[in-house]
Amino acid sequence: MQINSSSFLYGQQGLQRSQDKLDQASQKVASASTQTLNQTAPTTDATASNARYGSDIQDGLIEAKSSELEAKANAKVIDTSNQTIGRLIDIMA
């Protein structure tokens, strides 16, 4: 009898997507930080610009935290799938 575990595959795919999202969020934070550091003498326009970059940093950090939570959820899916497959093998053996 063949045991098909699509939940395991979905967990793996979700974990990979979470990693990709974390990479993008990290790049967003790094890019916004670099832009903020490269700002010239503060003027009214630069102050508004710094607020925008600060928002990009905050967005990136929120996205990073979100991807962390998604990764944990996908790891639980993989773990549960693994336990289920183990139980099925024990029952069938």
Rank of each mutant, 00 (worst) to 15 (best):
R87K: 14
G54P: 11
E68Q: 13
R87A: 13
G86K: 11
A93M: 14
I3C: 02
D79Y: 07
K72G: 04
G86W: 01
T40Q: 09
G14V: 03
Q24L: 00
L22C: 02
L37A: 13
K72H: 09
G11I: 03
D56E: 11
S49D: 06
T43V: 07
D90A: 09
N38T: 04
M1Y: 09
G86M: 04
D56L: 04
Q39F: 00
L9V: 15
V77K: 00
T80W: 09
A41V: 15
A30N: 12
G11A: 02
R52Q: 10
T40K: 12
N4W: 01
K65P: 15
G60K: 03
S26Y: 07
S18P: 09
K72W: 11
I89V: 13
T36I: 07
L88C: 09
Q24C: 00
D59L: 11
S26H: 09
D56C: 05
K28I: 02
L61F: 03
S31F: 01
D59N: 14
R87F: 12
L88G: 09
L69Q: 07
I78M: 07
R52S: 06
S66M: 05
P42I: 08
Y53G: 00
Q16C: 02
G11F: 00
S31D: 03
S6M: 08
Q39P: 00
A71N: 11
N50E: 08
I78H: 00
A73F: 04
A32S: 01
A64Q: 06
T34I: 07
G54R: 11
Q19I: 14
Q16L: 07
K21V: 06
S31T: 06
Q19S: 12
A25L: 01
S26W: 07
I62N: 15
E63M: 04
S7M: 09
R52N: 08
D20C: 04
Q58N: 04
Y10E: 15
S6N: 12
D20L: 11
L9I: 14
T40W: 08
T84E: 01
F8K: 15
S33Y: 03
R87E: 15
D45N: 05
L22A: 06
G86H: 05
G54I: 12
K72S: 08
N4G: 02
R17S: 00
L61I: 12
G14S: 03
A64S: 12
I89Q: 10
A32M: 01
L69S: 06
L37V: 08
A48R: 12
S26G: 03
A93H: 14
T40Y: 06
K72F: 11
G11P: 04
T44G: 04
D56Q: 13
I3V: 09
S6C: 08
A71Y: 12
L15T: 01
S18C: 08
V29I: 06
Y53P: 01
S66Y: 08
A51M: 12
T47M: 14
Q83H: 13
N82M: 06
N74M: 13
M1D: 13
A64R: 07
A32G: 02
N50L: 14
N4H: 10
L15G: 01
N38M: 04
A64Y: 05
A46V: 15
S7T: 10
S81C: 02
D45G: 04
V77I: 12
V77G: 00
A48S: 10
T34M: 11
Q83R: 13
D23Y: 09
Q39I: 02
A75R: 10
N82Q: 09
Q35M: 04
G11T: 00
D23F: 10
